[in-house]
Simulated assay, not measured.
Amino acid sequence: MNVQVIMRDGEPEYAVLPWAEYQTLLHAAGRPAPAAATEAASSAPAVPGRPTLACLAELREGKGLTQEQLARAVGISPHYLAMIEKGERQPDSAIRRALAWNLGVDGWGDDM
């Protein structure tokens, strides 16, 4: 099994593993595998008056936050936040909600 352990303050915080291995573990535990993340979040039409993830870096900078500060507040790595800001990754709804809450943006849940 190929697992990456992400540490914070010398303690393991997250375990990252390939999607296929995750699905195998879920199957072995008798749980249904969730659907893979899609690009739907990035292709969804913008809601008028609501900022999109394309504005994430501007919103963060407007709040006077560094990538590390926002990432730690949300519970993700600064590297992952940088990938979201560049459009290289699409965060799941829980991360979008945490970003919205920390930036004072309405929405960014499942309907984004």
Rank of each mutant, 00 (worst) to 15 (best):
M1N: 13
V3A: 13
Q4E: 15
V5D: 11
V5I: 15
I6V: 14
I6S: 13
I6A: 12
R8H: 12
R8Q: 14
D9G: 13
E11W: 07
E11Q: 14
E13I: 00
E13Y: 09
V16H: 12
V16Q: 14
P18H: 09
A20P: 05
Y22K: 05
Q23T: 12
T24D: 15
L25V: 10
L26D: 02
L26K: 07
L26M: 13
A28S: 12
A28H: 12
A29R: 12
G30L: 02
R31T: 01
R31L: 13
P32C: 01
P32I: 00
P32G: 01
A33S: 14
A33N: 09
A33E: 12
P34G: 06
P34W: 06
P34Y: 04
A35S: 13
A36W: 06
A37S: 11
A37D: 01
E39G: 11
A40V: 06
A44D: 07
P45N: 04
P45G: 02
A46G: 12
A46T: 08
V47L: 09
P48T: 05
P48S: 09
P48F: 04
T52N: 08
T52V: 09
L53T: 00
L56M: 08
L56I: 05
A57R: 15
E58C: 01
E58S: 11
R60I: 00
R60K: 07
E61M: 07
G64F: 02
G64W: 04
L65K: 09
T66F: 05
Q67M: 10
E68C: 02
E68K: 13
L70R: 02
L70M: 07
A71L: 03
V74M: 06
G75Q: 11
G75V: 06
G75R: 10
S77E: 14
L81R: 00
A82V: 07
M83L: 15
I84A: 01
I84V: 15
E85N: 10
E85G: 06
K86H: 13
G87M: 09
E88R: 15
Q90F: 05
Q90C: 07
S93F: 02
S93Y: 03
I95V: 15
I95S: 00
I95Y: 02
R97H: 10
A98C: 05
L99H: 02
A100I: 03
W101A: 14
W101I: 04
W101C: 06
N102G: 02
N102K: 11
V105T: 06
V105S: 09
D106T: 09
G109F: 05
G109Q: 08
D111Q: 11
D111P: 01
D111A: 11
M112P: 02
